[in-house]
Amino acid sequence: MAAISRDDVAHLAKLARIEMTPAELDHMASELEQILGAVKRVQEVATSDIAPTSHPLSMSNVFRDDVVKPSLTNEEALSGAPAKADERFKVPQILGEE
């Protein structure tokens, strides 16, 4: 396994939206490498003939009826908002567009 570089961590931190200082990146890189060194053991036994388990119980088809139930009020919905305006969540400018 390749060593984890500061750039690797910087990329991960960007994907995870966590601002990190260069010192933090370095520290995280060495910790991540240490942890990955320990956890990569899973590869020793994870052969291709084993089916992955993503969920402890085998359940399926859990559905809800298409019935409307009361929503939160606008006030309740916005109750935790760091900022609000015009019945909406007020947030810093969203750059770019979709």
Binding site: R88, V91, I94
Partner: peptide, 8 residues
């Protein structure tokens, strides 16, 4: 004073 407003 630019900001965005969100309606969910």
């Amino acid at each position: 004073a630019e900001y965005s407003l969100l309606d969910y």
